[in-house]
């Protein structure tokens, strides 16, 4: 199987969905990213990425419950699929492998990320 290369933002969203476990939908992902990384992202960008990841089979979704602040509309709840988890592990392994090969002085620049 050809491996799908995750983009940086895709990886972030995929991770966030994993963290949120059963409670991942557009706004919660947005808020979580903001809380965890301080990044301000656009809600429609989050939607696009969620839909794309679902199309790739990395996420699965189902309709969740309606709440008052949503004007009675239901949420689409996303869950990490096994392929999604595999993809995240892949990325992490790749990162670690590359990271380990960095020459020593490069380590000085690694703080803060």
């Amino acid at each position: 199987m050809k491996r799908y290369h995750l983009g940086e933002f895709e990886e972030l969203v995929l991770l966030t969905v994993g963290i949120l476990d059963q409670e991942a939908y557009g706004v919660s992902v947005l808020e979580e990213i903001k809380a965890q990384t301080g990044r301000k992202v656009n809600i429609s960008a989050v939607h696009t990425v969620l839909n794309r990841l679902e199309d790739k089979g990395l996420l699965t979704s189902k309709m969740g419950g309606a709440t008052e602040e949503r004007g009675g509309r239901r949420k689409r709840l996303f869950v990490l699929s096994s392929a999604g988890r595999l993809a995240l592990e892949d990325v992490r392994n790749m990162r670690n492998k590359l990271f380990d090969q960095l020459p020593p002085f490069a380590l000085d620049f690694s703080n803060g990320y």
């Binding site: 557009g26 706004v27 309709m63 602040e69 004007g71 509309r73 949420k75 689409r76």
Partner: peptide, 16 residues
């Protein structure tokens, strides 16, 4: 097909 989730999110953000 996407209206409900999108509109819901928009409402939720509005309220936030």
């Amino acid at each position: 097909e996407k209206l409900e989730e999108i509109e819901g999110d928009a409402y939720e953000l509005f309220n936030l």
